[in-house]
Amino acid sequence: MSNRITQLFGIKYPIIQAGMIWASGWKLASAVSNAGGLGLIGAGSMYPEVLREHIQKCKEATSKPFGVNVPMLYPDIDKLMEIIVELEVPIVFTSAGNPATWTSFLKEKGIKVVHVVSSVKFALKAQQAGVDAVVAEGFEAGGHNGRDETTTLALIPAVREQIQIPLIAAGGIATGRSMLATMVLGADGVQVGTRFVASDEASSHIRFKERVVAAKEGDTQLTLKELAPVRMLKNEFFEQVQEAYRRCATPDELRELLGRARAKRGMFEGDLEEGELEIGQVSAVIHDIKPAAQIVEEMMEEYQSAIQTLIQK
């Protein structure tokens, strides 16, 4: 399959594995890249030297293109960028910040840059900043999300109408059928997060993976908008947040409740009650944990099958 995304990244399939904190280490990124997609190392949960180690190991595990996702709110982002340039990472996805801050610097080093957005407004800003592509992420997505609650179904055609650069759809995509749907709406490729959390190679804790597989419709909710909107599974910590809202807690009180390393505690260490369990709505249709390569293969097979089904109707 060849289109603007496969040509941009030099990959076989227009499937990008999201750079998720505590799930997207070198094992997952290299497995997805070896399977024909684009694997991303999630730098948001890594100290600079840890990122260095993951990039080096990823290079040893695959000869295919891979990238790094860098949340721009990271306190030592300059150190991360120095390592990325030093180790000649070919692709960087930036998120949670102004794309103009690092895009020119990275492109001058020959690095392809993609920025994650949740609205038409920010997609246009990213295009103006000179990025090579944008990821438009809908309200369904897990982890940190947009404040406007625009769904993928509404967001993708709205962004497509306004930008000229390649568009990657994200949020609620875990199957070949959903991939096809977003491509019909105007996307050139898809970014998949939640489905890859439930993979053998994801670095997240097995208890978290099993909780994702067990999730049902309505088990996730977007909350903590006063700090940074985040979609998570409902658990004891989530109920503590809801109780804080009922007593009209201030942003500072919510910040104190969140504390430090709450996401690590849940997703990496496997504390299913007191940890923050970030995951997307599409977890409700994920029923097993399997190798990343099988996920890519099955998505592409279903994508092609769905096209044939539509042709025959």
Results as ranks from 00 to 15, higher is better:
275 G>S: 05
135 V>E: 11
164 Q>K: 15
233 L>Q: 05
172 G>S: 08
153 L>N: 08
230 V>I: 15
271 D>A: 08
175 T>D: 03
171 G>H: 08
184 V>T: 15
125 K>Y: 02
240 Q>S: 13
223 T>E: 04
113 V>D: 05
100 A>C: 00
252 D>I: 00
283 S>D: 08
152 T>W: 08
21 I>M: 13
222 L>S: 13
28 L>V: 01
35 A>I: 11
312 Q>I: 04
122 F>C: 03
261 A>H: 13
132 D>P: 11
138 G>K: 11
65 P>R: 04
93 F>L: 14
244 A>T: 01
310 L>S: 11
193 G>M: 12
197 V>S: 09
66 F>K: 00
33 S>A: 07
287 H>I: 08
47 Y>F: 15
191 Q>G: 09
205 H>I: 13
207 R>V: 03
290 K>H: 03
180 L>E: 03
198 A>D: 11
29 A>S: 14
73 L>H: 10
155 L>K: 12
61 A>F: 03
52 R>T: 05
67 G>P: 04
7 Q>N: 09
269 E>C: 11
282 V>C: 12
221 Q>N: 04
159 V>G: 07
285 V>P: 09
23 A>Y: 05
175 T>R: 00
267 M>S: 06
76 D>S: 15
139 F>Y: 15
203 S>T: 12
226 E>A: 13
222 L>W: 01
